[in-house]
Design a protein around this nucleic acid. Structure first.
Length: 300
DNA sequence: ACATCCCCTTAGCC
DNA sequence: AGGCTAAGGGGAT
């Protein structure tokens, strides 16, 4: 199957989208990207304006790919809004066509609980371990892939089994959150129809979910494009590019710290939403990629 | 080689 | 209330 893109009305860059650190389940082999999405392996490549894809064991159609990569977002409009800022405009020139993905909320939640205080290669490794141990094996093009475990798979695992996937202290949060989701006490899909603030408040009640994890889940899986995740990279970028929007004492206090308090997180996050508007999450992704590429430490 | 720091932070303690 | 600290283990320097 393939999708014909119109780069002027609907720009898309597969490479930037898969390399920007929002997704942990994609790997490039030769000219093709292979990813595990739900119960399927998806193989995809972009050749100029063509997106060519194939899935196994079940087929997927254009609407599946369009939904996953949010090709329904009006990207030219979004970029014109956030691109009023000169730093974001520079990021857009470098990484135009980057899109936020629409992930499965359950997988996204567990992935970002695992992401706590970890670098991206290590996060990928933990998720692969969980999937090998608790997911389903799919062999395609003579490569082995493993689907992401379902809530009941993790909820009924022992703490030791989950720790065996190299999750460290995150294992307790992953197990407890899985039990809550599996028992039906927390319905992730219900968050989609709530506003950003309410949905975030709900997510914060889950173990292992702080503001950063909540914002990532809301942005990458629940259509809250105003979510503005603040990690150490984003803290640096914001204080570096926009110091005049904060009190001098705030900048002085926060700039040298490797971690930030919940209050400081809120200050930076609400600046992002106020300054960039309803598509703050898109601005965050462009700035995130820019900050990481500048240091040349693209350990993604 | 090898030590040391860092990591898309959270939660528990005081 | 808010500052301090511990918590896997792998990657980067």
């Amino acid at each position: 199957m393939e999708i014909q893109l119109d780069q002027s009305s609907s720009p898309f860059n597969l490479e930037h989208t898969l390399r920007c650190g929002q997704l942990f389940r994609w790997e490039k082999m030769g000219d093709w990207w292979y990813g595990i999405v739900g119960e399927k392996v998806v193989k995809i490549r972009q050749i100029n304006d063509r997106l060519v894809f194939q899935a196994f064991p079940e087929k997927v159609y254009a609407n599946f790919v369009e939904n996953y990569f949010r090709l329904d977002d009006d990207l030219p409009f979004i970029l014109s809004r956030i691109g009023e800022d000169k730093h974001v405009r520079r990021a857009i020139r470098c990484f135009g066509g980057l899109r936020i993905s629409r992930q499965d909320p359950w997988e996204c939640l567990i992935s970002y609980i695992c992401a706590t205080y970890k670098n991206i290669p290590a996060i990928k490794n933990m998720i692969l371990n969980l999937s090998k141990r608790f997911g389903r094996k799919i062999t395609f093009n003579s490569h082995h892939f493993y689907t992401f475990p379902k809530p009941s798979d993790l909820a009924h695992a022992s703490l030791e089994e989950i720790k065996g996937c190299k999750l460290g202290f995150r294992a307790v949060s992953v197990l407890e959150a899985s039990k809550i989701i599996d028992r039906g006490e927390f319905r992730l899909e219900d968050l989609r129809k709530m506003d950003y603030e309410k949905a975030k408040h709900e997510l914060l009640s889950l173990p292992g979910v702080g503001q950063k994890v909540a914002d990532c889940v809301l942005l990458f899986s629940l259509d809250k494009l105003e979510a503005f995740p603040v990690d150490v990279w984003m803290k640096r970028v914001i204080l570096d590019f926009y110091p005049d929007y904060f009190e001098d004492s705030f900048v002085e206090r926060v700039v040298g710290k490797s971690s930030i308090t919940p209050g400081e997180y809120e200050t930076i996050g609400s600046f992002g939403r106020r300054y960039f508007g309803e598509y703050a999450g898109y601005a965050q992704e462009y700035l995130f990629l820019l900050s990481r590429s500048q240091g040349e430490n693209m350990n993604i």
